[in-house]
Design a protein around this nucleic acid. Sequence first.
DNA 1: CGCATATAGTTAGTTAGCGAACTAATTTAA
DNA 2: TTAAATTAGTTCGCTAACTAACTATATGCG
Lengths: 163, 163
Amino acid sequence: MTEHDPPPDYAAIRDLFRNVGIINQLAGAVARRALGSSVVGGAGMGTSEMMVLGRSIRMGDGETPTRLARLFQLSKPSMSAIITKLGRKGFVELRADTGDARSKRVYVTETGRAAHAAAEAQLNTAMVRELAGVDVAAILSAAPGIALLKGHMDERRNAVDGL
Amino acid sequence: MTEHDPPPDYAAIRDLFRNVGIINQLAGAVARRALGSSVVGGAGMGTSEMMVLGRSIRMGDGETPTRLARLFQLSKPSMSAIITKLGRKGFVELRADTGDARSKRVYVTETGRAAHAAAEAQLNTAMVRELAGVDVAAILSAAPGIALLKGHMDERRNAVDGL
DNA sequence: CGCATATAGTTAGTTAGCGAACTAATTTAA
DNA sequence: TTAAATTAGTTCGCTAACTAACTATATGCG
């Protein structure tokens, strides 16, 4: 905290943030198009739904909506909406938490797992197509700095909000 | 284009995109808070308005809304809305294009320049506060890779949409 | 010329996110 | 032990983006 800040390079930092914003937007568009339709359960899947499904499959399901909201830095109402959509498609199931009647637990159904696998294949295909002809290693060289920045902002935000 | 793609590291790339998304979201929240109120003309300014104003001041005004939309990779209606807001605050002025009656030109007013300067100062302050205690150089090491990725996706999108 | 096509900007309607405020359940502490 | 404070999830209303479709002007070609 208490540091002798050297004059920060505003322009370079602003550029970085702006490029991050543009990448995010373009990547979102690509992902949306890839997921837009034709996923197993019919009707397609939003990128946020995909993220939640993926995390629940890879890291284990049974999380509460609030915990998922924090994990993805989304507000509780947003996560609530995402889970509702996943539920309507039959991709997740909400069960009551035995022992805390306020809480719910999110479980991925078999249908959900299949839909996620199909969607992930489409995403990977789109990603390969999107990155065709680019120096992937050069791009991945940005990963440590980006991870650092993300970690720092995460912490700060959590500090401000009191987790 | 025609390349023997080595097996791409899906997980690392997905991680990068996800971190980019989270940074974007958190940075947006910080910027929104910084610009939220108390800018010259009263009532605050959105981050997109700020971007348009900044570009028009730094690189020269008199662009058409459509060209600005393309520059920022926003849809025409979105840019239209941004310009309308800037106009209502008196930060920009729209003049007819002599020679093409369909077209308009966006000029930044003196008020707009003052508002932009004030807002930029607030943004820089917020940025310094946000990045306090972090290794800025390490973060900026991500800039080249990010710029490369952004450039690549820009090109691809323009190729797809036919500019 | 005059019609087909393309471009500039706007309008209408949708969507995904947010914050504020609410209800219900739990925990803390007087 | 009961009142106050906290936590989980939802509802409401807002904002800023999007796409699709429209109007008006420009351009290109038969």
